[in-house]
Design a protein around this nucleic acid. Structure first.
Lengths: 275, 275
DNA sequence: ATATACAATTGACATTTGTCAAGTTTTTTT
DNA sequence: AAAAAAACTTGACAAATGTCAATTGTATAT
């Protein structure tokens, strides 16, 4: 909703930057933005859309390693990733990190902070990253004015709950093989939803982050990557990933845990390195 | 918000049952109800509270094993547990279950269905259970009218996201020992928040459900229970649980943010069976 | 460009957890 | 009350994953 067409010339005063330049910098158009759902479906248009657009701030891009917000920092805005990516994690007592999630272009950050009023985690850029900032109190006001926006925002929060639960399924059970499969599929789908390639993408997070996130040892993740490649399921050159056998990945992700007792042969018989 | 005092005599017409009887049946008073947060903080009072109270339906109690809603059933209401408990699970391809969560008195169900409009899971009573039903479209209307209710409800959804993330931390990493510890602590805390004992409670779900939920084999869960008892950490007589050494459980649970107050030495050094 | 630090991989081994199987207890049904 | 069915527990073993250690490869800084 930030970088829609020039059709709103009056907004150009908001930033020192030229609107045109902004568009150039934009890697994600509103059409593919998570928050877009806050606007579109009959909901907001014309003057109303401008209202929403008006409250959104632009933050200057973060470099790799820079933090969008720190843990326990007070909550005032939610954020949308415009380009790049971030991870959120909560620091543990012994100085470790516990990775909570990754945030790709078009996705939101900060929804978990509304309740308590402070961020329960750190958000750190995995690469050069730019975000939109949406001041929450102004958003709340706007929601009050625009019933359809209210509906959309509630849906959005619910979606987040739904997605988290799907991940809990993933993390709760599953072998290392299944976890990594599901992780790759998840990333792939998220890229697809934003209009990027679902079969070839750049994994900005380290193997360490992935392992941490999935509750595995780095070595295990590494070995899985190797095995998936040997089996021709994916091609992984460092962080550049190509998915060759989507269906096999799906089987490994979806079925392994659930179909442990399924037909005939033991579970990961065919999962081993047979393919 | 359902069973507050008799101060609203006009509502007695809503149910065939006598209000007095209802109070008798009630195991949870609004003070300890999750949805109570929708009402109280300066928010709703008097006539407004009545409005909220008015839209809430009472469902007749579910017996053990009965379902509150089925998977893919269309979403129209959210529910609050008044007494008893439920589990939510999603059926898997091979007819298995994948337990997603447990719902204790005062807790909500159905928030994950708002986005898509249908329930992504089954809700089944683990024991005799009664719930409040809150029709969502009417709630949305009310939210529109009452800004403070809007704020509260957004907080509530955020809280759910926050809680889910905490669980993801739990499930993502951790040994069986840590998982079960964290699970017990989580249940304990949730009882405490509702005003029940945090050191002695009834686990309405089977070991199987727990194992499924935590991504472990039943046998592993069983062994853990045994070990925790041998170590004097808990006393478990079937489903009746007593927590004797809260601090040890916290240590075993690891260092996720659940246990903010711990001053941790190494993780599961002492976790073995040394205590 | 070279040196350095960091990230990723690989192997050997120990530990944890799952699986299979049997047995016990509790709950439900008849 | 007896019988049957679940639910739970326990043991033995196999498989999966974590840990330790060494190596290679890649990115960063000088």
């Amino acid at each position: 909703m930030r970088d829609k067409q020039i059709q709103s010339p009056n907004k150009s005063t908001r930033n020192s930057q030229n609107k045109i330049v902004e568009i150039h910098k934009t890697n994600v158009v509103c059409e593919e933005c998570s928050l877009h759902q806050l606007c579109l479906p009959q909901s907001i248009q014309g003057a109303e859309l401008e209202k929403l657009d008006y409250i959104i701030k632009r933050k200057k891009p973060l470099k790799r390693g820079e933090e969008l917000f720190q843990v326990n920092s007070s909550f005032s805005s939610i954020y949308v990733v415009r380009s790049g990516s971030l991870k959120t994690y909560s620091p543990t007592i012994d100085g470790q990190e516990q990775v909570i999630g990754f945030h790709l272009p078009g996705e939101l950050l900060g929804l978990d902070a509304i309740a308590e009023g402070y961020h329960p985690c750190v958000a750190k850029a995995l690469e050069t990253t730019s975000v939109c900032e949406v001041p929450f109190n102004r958003l709340e006001e706007l929601i009050r004015e625009l019933p359809s926006l209210q509906h959309q925002f509630l849906r959005l929060l619910s979606k987040e709950i739904f997605d988290d639960q799907e991940l809990m399924l993933l993390l709760g059970k599953k072998t290392a093989e299944a976890r990594l499969s599901a992780f790759l599929l998840s990333i792939s789908l998220r890229f697809k939803q934003r209009g990027f390639s679902s079969t070839e993408f750049y994994l900005s997070m380290s193997r360490n982050d992935i392992a941490n996130y999935l509750g595995l040892a780095v070595e295990t993740v590494s070995r899985m990557f190797t095995r998936f490649q040997e089996d021709g399921i994916i091609k992984a050159e460092r962080k550049h990933i190509m998915i060759n056998k989507w269906d096999v990945l799906q089987q490994l992700a979806g079925i392994s845990q659930l179909d442990e007792h399924i037909t005939g042969n033991g579970r990961n018989n065919c999962s081993k390195r047979s393919l």
